[in-house]
Amino acid sequence: MTIRDMVRILSARVLIGEEKLDTPVYTACCSDLMSDVLAFVDEKTVLITGLTNPHVVRTSEMLDLKCLVFARGKIPTEDILESAEEQGLVVISTKLTAFSTCGMLYEAGLRGVPVPVEWDSKEEK
């Protein structure tokens, strides 16, 4: 699907990047923990989050993410949007909760960023 499809599915509002809505997307991740995102995301993906601080945009910049989705209708401040614009990120906001956002996108064919699912035998119980 494209970001335009995501906007339609989520009844989202496009905050930044109207001209890039035809960018294709294949995977997404959802987290409020930027360290977590920095630890397992290794592809140009979509981040769904409820946090609207500058570090969400900076994390996206470090990882070259394609699109940021703010759940629960959150809208970051103007300066945060400006830095998102500078780096060419698409930013959208949906009224849906993070859970429903993920669910609807998954149902429409988007998948999670691949992570290993097997437990390492050395890992503590």
């Binding site: 987290s31 409020d32 923990l33 930027m34 360290s35 977590d36 995102v37 920095l38 630890a39 946090l51 601080n53 570090h55 969400v56 994390t59």
Partner: peptide
């Protein structure tokens, strides 16, 4: 923590 850090994953992630 409120900014999304403090998960204790920074150093291991740097090493990786």
């Amino acid at each position: 923590r409120s900014l999304g850090f403090g998960a204790g994953m920074g150093l291991p992630n740097m090493k990786r």
